[in-house]
């Protein structure tokens, strides 16, 4: 019992620590990549090539003044960033970083929990996370904030559905809802080959759920002056920021797990493969951000309901047909 608890505790701390480190350094990575895409250097002053910049930013966040607007709804205003970061961190529980390894004669699995319903857990909790944006925008009592919150909720509702439909295709091929099971099912053939349409839908919807350009409606700087988090300062703003990057990490890990074969790969150990693929996805997120301009709001809604949703249904239909003809 003691041993079980100790192992679980250590694993939790490792997963938490590594993920927080990745979250901190993906901000640095994003600024660097964006800089180089735009023929700039990005952060250079703090440490070698700005490597200590995230730490400096964190310290600055702690020491800044905390402001709560006069006409804010105070309890909800404080609750919103907490919901955001808590949901993002709870998602780390089910990510399968790798297969099991043997340390000191003990077999240790490289994931915290293998839920029977893993993928549904991810979909459910990430919805809860978007309450953070909505409530943050609404409670700050600022018109830009409210508009950002409204857009966040509309976008979440519209893109969650096609995302779930894309996942259904993967679940049909793998025959399980458990993330570890889905990775194991890809030992021979990665799902990106078996489910190309689902892959495209999932990536587009994921970018929309992450509020990244071209879908960064809730915080469109040019129109909404940063949108839902306009009134937040200091650590509360930092929590929103961390949640956003934690979500990006989870999204990259989900694409890796669902479509890119998870920890499977030749020569190198599984964990290394997992992180290579995940970082490739994170790089993709930053790359496309520096490539595409922001869509118009009505275009975003149209794309969600009129293109991606039917495409999701089509994918399920085609997958069913395929399974009926070739394996049934």
């Amino acid at each position: 019992m003691i041993e079980f608890v100790t192992i679980l505790l250590v694993k939790t701390l490792v997963v938490f620590g590594v993920s927080m480190l990745i979250v901190a350094y993906s901000t640095w990575f994003e600024r660097k990549v964006l800089g180089h895409v735009q023929l700039r250097h990005g952060p250079m002053r703090v440490g070698f090539h700005g490597l200590l910049q995230p730490i400096a930013d964190g310290i600055k966040g702690f020491f800044k003044e905390e402001l709560v607007p006069e006409n804010a709804d105070k309890p909800v205003f404080i609750l919103a960033p907490i919901i955001s970061i808590a949901a993002a961190l709870s998602l780390l529980v089910v990510i399968p970083f790798g297969d099991s390894v043997t340390i000191m004669g003990k077999e240790i699995t490289l994931y915290l929990a293998d839920l029977d319903i893993g993928i549904l857990y991810v979909l459910g909790i990430s919805t809860i996370g978007s309450y953070g944006c909505m409530l943050g925008g609404w409670s700050s009592g600022n018109k830009y904030g409210v508009l950002g919150g409204l857009r966040a909720s509309a976008q979440m509702i519209s893109y969650e559905l096609p995302m779930a439909l894309a996942v259904i295709g993967v679940v049909m091929v793998s025959g399980t809802l458990s993330l570890v099971g889905i990775v194991n099912a890809q030992a021979g053939l990665w799902n990106i080959v078996a489910q190309p349409l689902a892959f495209v839908i999932f990536i587009i919807c994921g970018l929309a759920e992450l509020n990244r350009t071209p879908f960064d409606m809730p915080e469109a700087e040019a129109e909404l002056a940063c949108g839902y988090n306009v009134e937040y300062s200091s650590m509360k703003f930092a929590l929103f920021f961390m949640a956003e990057y934690a979500h990006m990490f989870v999204f990259a890990a989900m694409v890796t797990t669902l479509f890119l074969g998870g920890w499977h790969g030749p020569f190198l150990p599984g964990v290394v493969w997992f992180f290579i693929k995940t970082f490739a996805m994170i790089f993709f997120c930053i790359w496309e951000r520096s490539t595409f301009p922001r869509c118009r709001y009505d275009q975003v809604m149209k794309l969600g309901w009129k293109v991606l949703l039917p495409a999701g249904f089509l994918n399920i239909f085609l997958t069913g047909l395929w399974m009926l003809v070739f394996s049934g």
């Binding site: 459910g124 919805t127 978007s130 609404w138 409204l150 909720s153 979440m156 509702i157």
Partner: peptide
């Protein structure tokens, strides 16, 4: 997730 999101959207 979904239904309460709709309701809060309507309220806002």
């Amino acid at each position: 997730g979904a239904i309460m999101m709709f309701i809060i959207y309507a309220i806002m």
